[in-house]
Every structure is written in C-alpha cells, then in structure tokens.
C-alpha cells in the first residue's frame, strides 16, 4: 500500500503539488488525471524520489521513503517499483534484450545466463517476440513503449508507475497499451499508478481516478462517479476531452 500524506513540491515559488494526500491500495489501478502542468508527473516522480518534495511523507508498505537518507536506502525502495516513462526512455546504445534486462544486474541476484530467457519471457508478456536482438531505432513508437514496459516489469516489481502511457501513440498501439496495463494488474497482481490526460484511458482501466487540478486532488473517485461528477473542473475536463477526440 502507498500512503501519500501532505505532499508539497514547489518550483520557482509555485506550489506544483499543494499539500496533497491519497492512499493507494494494493492491487488497484489508481489513475491521476488532469490537464498538462498540474503536477501529475511531479507526483509519480516524487513517489520514487526522482524529484525531492519539499514536505510530506510517502509511506510504501509502512516505510516512509522520504526518510531514506542514503542512496543505498533509496535504491532499496526503488526495487519495488517499475516505471514506464512517457517516451519510453530506452537506452539507444543497447539492443532490445539488453534494455529489458538492464535493471536485473542492479536490482536482483539473478545470474546473467538467465537474462536472455527472462527478456524473451517479458517480451512475450507484452506481445513481442523475436525482436531480442533488434536495435531500439528499428522499433516503432508502440513497440518501444511495449519494450519499455517489459523492462519495467523485468524485476517483478510490486508497483508500477505509468507516465502518460498512451501519449504519442496511434489508436491501435494505444489500445494495446491499455489492455496491457489491465493485464499487468490482473495477471501479475501489480499495483499501478497511471498518470494521464487521456480520459478514455483513465475511464477504461482505473479502479479509482484522482483528478489533479492546480496541485490539488479536487476529486478522488471511481470512474463511474467521476463521469457523473458535479465538480465544474472535472466536468469541463471530461467534456473537452471527448469533444477533442471526436
């Protein structure tokens, strides 16, 4: 379980995250939705301390990760997480299987001989086969995202953080990713935090949605209740998104 309490992050004297609190239960897909620049990415980057918040606490399985002092302690916390970056963030200098298994060397004790088998296994899980030896620049945008997802789950994390997983993808690739997020949660029992401004994605996959607006959660609710929300900003955001998609 992840408990976020009174989290505040300030950039250039602007509170990007303003004293926000939320609990994320094990096994759920919690989606943070909201327009660009409202602090969504800042939130998930804070969860694994890629960004240092000014105040608050982030308790993962009973342990406040903001209290971890040394880089070793922080790395220990990160072992529990997988992270899918907005653009994939795959290493161009490595091929597909080297990318997928990159973290195993640092996050696990798995012997090197098993890496290629694990890479094949994880790639199969995201619907990719026989591409282990391809270079990253030979892959399409959708394939890159899936390879990045295979990399994020390679070390069997308990939690996975998705940063705008469908951004920049065509509708077919986007649907594949949506299904994969659901599958990861169901098959692997991974707790997921998804950051997106894609309303369709949020309403399709989420157990709960937190609507982030100006650094604050203005509503946290199930997709059904979010759809019928009476809060003006939530209604406007959903309506505008549907008009744009039409």
């Amino acid at each position: 379980m992840i408990e976020v309490k009174n989290l505040t992050k300030i950039y250039d004297s602007k509170k990007v995250l303003n004293d926000i609190s939320v609990d994320i239960e094990n096994g759920e897909i919690f989606t943070i939705m909201g327009p660009s620049g409202t602090g969504k990415s800042t939130f998930i980057k804070s969860v694994i301390r890629l960004i240092e918040p000014e105040s608050g606490s982030i308790i993962v399985d009973g342990r406040d990760i903001l209290k971890a002092k040394s880089e070793f302690e922080i790395q220990n916390v990160r072992k529990n997480f997988g992270y899918l970056f907005q653009e994939g963030a795959l290493f161009d200098s490595l091929n597909v299987w080297e990318n997928v298994t990159f973290g195993l060397k640092y996050l696990t004790d798995i012997p090197k001989e098993k890496y290629i088998r694990i890479a094949k296994e994880k790639l199969k899980l995201v619907g990719l086969e026989n591409i282990e030896y391809k270079k990253i620049n030979e892959l399409s945008g959708g394939m890159k995202k899936r390879v990045a997802l295979a990399r994020a789950i390679a070390h069997n994390p308990k939690y996975i953080l998705y940063d705008e997983p469908t951004t920049g993808l065509d509708p077919i690739s986007s649907d594949i990713i949506i299904n994969l997020i659901k599958e990861m949660a169901e098959k692997l029992k991974i707790t997921s935090i998804v950051v997106t401004h894609d309303v369709k994605l949020a309403l399709t996959i989420s157990t709960r949605i937190g609507m982030l607006f100006n650094g604050k959660f203005i509503e946290v609710n199930t997709p059904e209740k979010i759809k019928e929300s009476s809060i003006k900003e939530v209604k406007d955001f959903i309506e505008t998104s549907f008009i744009e998609s039409k």
């Binding site: 980057k45 694994i48 890629l50 880089e71 790395q75 990160r78 072992k79 997480f81 997988g82 992270y83 970056f85 907005q86 653009e87 963030a89 795959l90 290493f91 161009d92 990159f102 973290g103 060397k105 640092y106 996050l107 990399r151 994020a152 070390h155």
Partner: peptide
Amino acid sequence: GTMAVTEQIDALYTLGTN
C-alpha cells in the same frame, strides 16, 4: 545530454543504478 532530455538518466535511477 540526449539521455538527460529523453529521461534516460531518470531511467537509470529507476533501474537501480545511477
């Protein structure tokens, strides 16, 4: 620099190294 602007440096941290 390219790694920095494409979040590959952040990815290093999430994969247990720096």
